[in-house]
């Protein structure tokens, strides 16, 4: 067991847990935007900064991201020192200037007392804060159809060469996991469009409600070694039929 303190509270950990996990377990709130339970941490948004020290550091301390810093014996973690709060406010200022319309950003900024951004606002700024969740989700659980391209301020999430992707299966995992609803998609009856590609959403063979795209069913069928047709039954009918949640099959 590794023993450490967070905001004066004693916490214990098995190997390998990150400070964020421990803090949340102890009921201590740390804001995050690029953290997602389903994928490895990235450390991109820098909101989850906490201050760490040890008695033998003689008063010296440093800021680390809680989402990436593993628990260590004897560590003293503080989640809301002036240094932490100032860094967090400044990060939020930058995010607000970048994506002034993103609801998740506005809400967090307001929590930290920022109603009007002090820096030059990017009026054209879209909602993407480059948290990297969508790309990690797609790469880890689906087909890796999107990635972050370019460098610096020109960085963005895209399919290769901004063309309709060969491998995207239209599953919407990216759009659903995006904290700022930055990924454009549309669904019109049995037609879904995302990342420049149009998909047919197959109706439920039992009730006719939309299920999944043909590409997604094929991809999952191949991966799970089950029949493609098994996926063309909607959640409701599947539960009715088998008592199982289809989600378990999907992810």
């Amino acid at each position: 067991m590794i023993r450490l303190t967070i905001d004066g509270r004693r916490v214990e950990s098995r190997n390998g847990e990150y400070l964020l996990t421990l803090a949340r377990r102890a009921g201590i709130e740390i804001p995050t935007l690029c953290h997602h339970e389903a994928v490895e941490p990235a450390g991109a948004c820098r909101l989850c900064m906490v201050e760490i020290t040890r008695p033998q550091w003689n008063g010296w301390s440093k800021l680390v991201t809680a989402c990436l810093y593993p628990a260590e014996e004897g560590l003293i973690v503080k989640t809301s020192t002036e240094r932490v709060l100032r860094t967090r406010r400044e990060v939020l200022e930058l995010l607000l200037a970048r994506s002034p319309r993103a609801e998740a950003v506005r809400r967090l900024a307001a929590q930290y007392g920022i109603l009007e951004p002090k820096y030059a606002v990017d009026q054209e700024g879209d909602n993407c804060i480059l948290c990297d969740i969508c790309t990690r989700v797609c790469a880890t659980h689906v087909t890796g159809a999107i990635s972050r391209v370019n460098r610096g301020v020109a960085k963005k999430v895209a399919t290769p060469f901004d063309e309709a992707s060969d491998v995207c299966v239209g599953c919407m995992a990216c759009a659903r996991s995006c904290p700022t609803d930055a990924i454009a998609f549309s669904q019109d009856g049995a037609t879904r469009a995302i990342w420049g590609k149009t998909f047919e959403v197959v109706p439920c063979t039992v009730c006719g409600a939309p299920t999944v795209t043909r590409e997604q069913a094929r991809w999952m069928a191949q991966r799970k070694g089950v029949a493609e047709e098994d996926f063309y039954v909607c959640d409701v009918c599947k539960v009715a039929k088998t008592g199982l949640s289809c989600r378990k099959v999907m992810w």
């Binding site: 930058l94 995010l95 480059l130 301020v153």
Partner: peptide
């Protein structure tokens, strides 16, 4: 361009 402070 990975992290907010440096990029933005």
């Amino acid at each position: 361009g990975k992290c907010v402070p440096c990029r933005d």
